[in-house]
C-alpha cells in the first residue's frame, strides 16, 4: 500500500507559538485515519497546512508524491484534496445544489463568455455537473432538499451537505474536521457508518479529526495523536487506547491508576 499523503517534519509557528511542531504522518491509500488530541493540540492547524491556508515554516507535505506545501488553496483543491470544517461553513445564501456545484468548480472549464452566450459546450457541461450534483445530494440523504437555501437546512443536513460539496470535487483525499461535532449519539453513530461507506463508494482516502472516541476507535485504521503540536503516538486503535502518553495528554499526569480503576469497574459490570 502506497502513502497518498506524506507529512514530513512539518512545523507551523504563529509568532512565538509553535502550533505544529515537527510532525510527520503518512496516510496510506484508501485508509481511514484519525488525528486526535486535546483542544489546542494543532489538529486543525495541520489540516489547514495540508489544504493550503497556511504555508508551513518547515517540512514537506507530499500528495501522491508531489510537494503541495505553499500552494494556494484552490490549487490544492484542484489536485484532489477536499475538506469540511469544524464549524459548518456552507455558502449560506446558495441552494444546496448550488453549494455542491461550487465544489465541482475545478472540473468546469468553460469561461464567462460562453456562459453569456450559452454555447453548446457550456450547456452540456453545466447539465452534467448538475446531474452529478443531484446524485451526490441523493447519496448524502438530502433528496428533495436541492432547492433549499443552505442556511435553512437543519444542522445534520448541513453537515451532510458539506460532505457532498467536498465530494463534488471528486477528491482522492477527503479531510473531515470533526464531522460529528454537535450531534447526539444516534446521529453520531449513523454519521460514522456513513463515513465508512464513503471510502468504498467513492474510492477515497479519508483523514478525520474527531473527539468522539466511539467514532475514532470504530472506523479508523490508523490513529495519530497530537499534543501541544507534537505527535506523541501513532498506531492502531487498540495500541492508542493502551498508550500511557495518550492517557496522560487527555487526562493529565498521574491519572493512570484512575483509568485502571475505571476499566476494572467496567469489566466487573460487564
Amino acid at each position: 500500500m502506497t502513502d497518498v499523503l506524506q507529512i514530513q517534519n512539518v512545523t507551523k509557528q504563529f509568532g512565538g507559538l509553535t502550533a505544529v511542531d515537527n510532525v510527520s504522518i503518512d496516510i496510506p491509500e484508501k485508509s481511514i485515519s484519525s488525528i486526535i488530541g486535546p483542544n489546542g493540540a494543532g489538529k486543525t492547524t495541520l489540516f489547514n497546512c495540508i489544504s493550503g491556508y497556511y504555508s508551513p515554516e518547515d517540512g514537506k507535505i507530499l500528495f501522491q508524491g508531489q510537494p503541495i506545501q505553499g500552494l494556494a488553496t484552490y490549487e490544492v483543491a484542484a489536485l484532489g484534496i477536499a475538506r469540511t470544517y469544524q464549524n459548518i461553513r456552507l455558502f449560506k445564501q446558495l441552494t444546496a445544489l448550488e453549494n455542491i456545484l461550487v465544489g465541482a468548480q475545478p472540473h468546469l472549464t468553460t469561461g464567462w463568455l460562453s456562459a453569456v452566450l450559452h454555447t453548446r459546450k457550456f450547456k452540456s457541461e453545466e447539465y452534467d455537473a448538475l446531474v452529478e450534483a443531484t446524485h451526490l445530494l441523493d447519496h448524502v440523504g438530502l433528496k428533495g432538499c436541492g432547492d433549499t437555501v443552505a442556511v435553512n437546512l437543519p444542522y445534520g443536513a448541513q453537515r451532510r451537505l458539506e460532505i457532498a460539496r467536498a465530494l463534488a470535487n471528486r477528491p482522492s483525499l477527503l479531510l473531515l474536521d470533526e464531522p460529528t461535532a454537535g450531534m447526539n449519539p444516534q446521529e453520531t453513530e449513523s454519521m460514522a457508518k456513513f463515513i465508512a461507506t464513503l471510502r468504498d463508494d467513492f474510492n477515497l482516502t479519508i483523514v478525520l479529526i474527531e473527539h468522539d472516541m466511539s467514532v475514532v476507535m470504530g472506523i479508523s485504521e490508523q490513529i495519530s495523536v497530537l499534543d501541544h503540536g507534537v505527535k506523541i503516538a501513532e498506531g492502531l486503535p487498540e495500541e492508542i487506547r493502551a498508550n500511557p502518553r495518550v492517557i496522560e495528554a487527555y487526562l493529565g499526569a498521574g491519572t493512570q491508576h484512575l483509568v485502571d480503576k475505571f476499566k476494572r469497574k467496567k469489566n466487573n459490570a460487564a
Partner: peptide, 10 residues
C-alpha cells in the same frame, strides 16, 4: 459568502 471556503472548493 465565504472567500476562504470558496477557494478551498476550487
Amino acid at each position: 459568502e465565504d472567500e476562504t471556503v470558496a477557494s478551498a472548493s476550487g
